[in-house]
Design a protein around this nucleic acid. Structure first.
Lengths: 155, 155
DNA sequence: GCCATTTAGTACTAATTAGAACTAAACTAA
DNA sequence: TTAGTTTAGTTCTAATTAGTACTAAATGGC
């Protein structure tokens, strides 16, 4: 195997972790000022401008696992931001949507946070941003394929 | 400001988060098989092949905040993998190092996990790996500078 | 129709997470 | 030196995290 170079893999991982950490710290700082936690913001941002969705769909979009999502939804429901509704067509499923207050909150915090994120990239060219999203998408795919392979092998 | 394009920032963030998640899932799967948690593995990997270091240095290298690190070290110390020693030259500081058993564990798990990570990238060229680490380093820098700016503004 | 399997969500656990308050020690400036 | 500040680490809290076990409901094959 001559396509892989041991010395070049660890730097990719290290920089990926550090870039993600930098994003998390920058983003969470603002989300906290808005009175939310990062997962709470993600849920509100995902439900905004939609009629609502099941826990499963919400989980897939936010990358929050179902066990965790139950607790996040509990806290948002306590705050009166989201509601849980039964679904006649599938009684196992729960339909989550923003309340009126939740929609109002979404209209406040979502554009504000987008603006805040854009500030960080104000000096970056469109080409640079496209290169990053394309390369990150490729890296994601490589890792997801490796994960899938592992999951199949353990069967 | 004509250098920033609103529609191009969100995809960068989305792909960064998804790439990181994919890494975490792939990596953690193996770390768990080794009987460790990801932060525990990071600490062992960082302390391996060193004489040891302070909590502060360990925190900077692993990106684990000090409050969290106390608990991680507690559990590793219970397992007999690391020890805490006083430092005569600075009595606020604690010197953390691997025990003999910890070094033995490091020699087992570190190469095994590196091999596992390399498997994921077996089809990637050296150029691809270098592009990823360079681009991720640039993205990390942009985000860290934005964070720093925020921290200065709040003073 | 009925049984086996799958699926959706909740409950529970141990560990991690960040932030804030706190203690003790070291440093610094006057 | 001494008061004020900074630094290292622990403690504490609320929330998140992933995994596992569990319940209830839907689905599929026969």
């Amino acid at each position: 195997m001559d396509t892989v170079y041991k010395t070049d893999v660890l730097p990719v991982i290290r920089e990926l972790v550090r870039a993600f950490q930098a994003f998390e710290q920058y983003s969470a700082r603002h989300v906290r000022e808005l009175g939310l936690t990062p997962p709470q913001f993600d849920v509100i941002a995902t439900l905004g401008n939609t009629p609502g969705m099941s826990c499963k769909e919400l989980s897939e979009k936010t990358l929050i696992t179902k066990g965790t999502l139950t607790g996040v939804i509990d806290r948002l429901a306590e705050k009166g931001v989201v509601t849980r509704q039964e679904r006649p067509e599938d009684r196992r499923s729960v339909f989550i949507s923003l309340t009126a207050a939740g929609e109002e909150l979404f209209r406040q915090v979502f554009p504000a946070h987008c603006d805040y994120m854009h500030q960080a990239f104000s000096q970056c060219s469109r080409d640079q941003l496209e290169l990053w999203s394309n390369q990150l998408a490729g890296l994601k795919t490589v890792l997801n394929q490796a994960l899938e392979k592992q999951e199949n092998e353990s069967t």
